[in-house]
Simulated scan of single mutants.
Amino acid sequence: MKTLPTQKRALEKRKALIQAARVSFAECGYENTTAKTIAEAAGVATGTFYQNFENKDDLLRVIAQQKRDEIYQAVPGLSTQTVETEEQSRGGYSTEALFRQVLEIVYDYHESEAELHQVMEQRRFIDKDLDEILLRSENVMEEKVLAYVKAHNTSNPEAVAYNLFAMAEGLVHRHVFGKPNSSKEDTLELGAKMLACYFECDQH
């Protein structure tokens, strides 16, 4: 990955290339996106592309890092503190509320530029560096779930957290990339209930 430029104009050109690539990967797919088409869409010379990126895979990794940063920004707002509900008059953690938050963050992450995300999911099996970036995005969410599970002294917390997050991500993938027969709201609500039930059953 090449060094970031320091001059304002050069940074603006780099930003334009990244934005053009996000659109091109999403609308045209990986194979039909080239350094030349990205540069043309950004209004810069192809040489400027190569001043900033090694190739289109390098640029796709930069985009993945940007999306990873979006997850990092969202996670601090994910609360594992006590959430009181009418059904929980005794207080304590609301498992359902936690997983609703997890599902919303994961859903928004995938729904935003869904076609672009599909390109990255396809390329991660070929590009190990891209896969590592995407794994870090997933791990930050899984670690939040793990912290919650550990707080409840659950047996084998790593396995429980892994399976819960895998179920959450699988549900989101099916709804965003498939042909859903339910609304986003209904999917998130029911998904949170199902994940909470899985967690609570593990307690017994």
Rank of each mutant, 00 (worst) to 15 (best):
S183M: 10
K15H: 10
G29A: 10
E142T: 03
A20M: 02
E31A: 13
D202K: 13
N181T: 15
A41M: 05
K56V: 08
K144A: 09
P157Q: 15
L171W: 02
A21G: 10
H173K: 14
G178H: 04
E132N: 03
G92A: 07
P5F: 03
R9G: 01
S112F: 04
V160D: 09
V44L: 08
K8W: 02
A41W: 04
F165D: 14
T48W: 06
L116W: 03
D69E: 10
E143V: 12
A159V: 15
E31S: 08
T33E: 02
F177H: 09
E40G: 03
Q7P: 00
T6R: 15
E111Y: 06
V145H: 08
A41I: 04
R14C: 06
R174V: 00
M1A: 06
V102A: 15
S112M: 09
Q65W: 02
D69V: 09
V160N: 13
A168R: 01
K184P: 04
I18L: 12
V75M: 14
Y198I: 01
M194G: 10
P5L: 12
G29N: 11
T95W: 01
V172A: 15
V106C: 15
A39P: 01
Q101D: 09
T95A: 14
T187A: 14
E121C: 08
D186Y: 00
K15D: 14
M167G: 10
I38G: 07
Q203R: 14
S137Q: 08
Q73E: 14
V106F: 11
A114D: 05
I38Y: 00
E115R: 13
L11G: 09
T6W: 07
E31R: 15
Q51K: 06
V149C: 08
L171Y: 01
N52Y: 05
F49Y: 05
S155E: 12
G92P: 00
L135G: 03
C28Y: 05
D58A: 10
V176E: 14
Q101C: 09
Y30W: 13
E121D: 03
G178R: 11
L195D: 07
S79Y: 06
Y109Q: 11
A39H: 02
K179F: 04
L17Y: 01
R61L: 02
R9N: 09
M141T: 02
A41E: 09
Y148L: 12
G43W: 09
A168K: 02
E138M: 05
Q101K: 11
E104H: 10
P76W: 14
Q122V: 02
G178F: 00
E169H: 06
V83K: 13
E104F: 02
A114I: 03
L188D: 07
E142Y: 00
K179R: 11
A16K: 05
S89D: 04
D127Y: 01
A16M: 04
Q118R: 12
L171G: 15
E200Q: 15
I18V: 14
A147L: 04
C201A: 11
V75K: 12
P76I: 12
M194H: 08
G92F: 02
N181Q: 10
V176N: 11
H110Q: 12
L134A: 02
Q203T: 04
Q122T: 06
T80E: 08
N139P: 02
H152D: 13
L103I: 00
I105L: 13
N32H: 11
A147S: 12
T37V: 09
A42N: 06
E12H: 01
L195F: 00
E84F: 01
E12K: 08
Y109V: 01
K56C: 08
F25M: 09
E115I: 03
T154F: 07
F177C: 06
T33C: 02
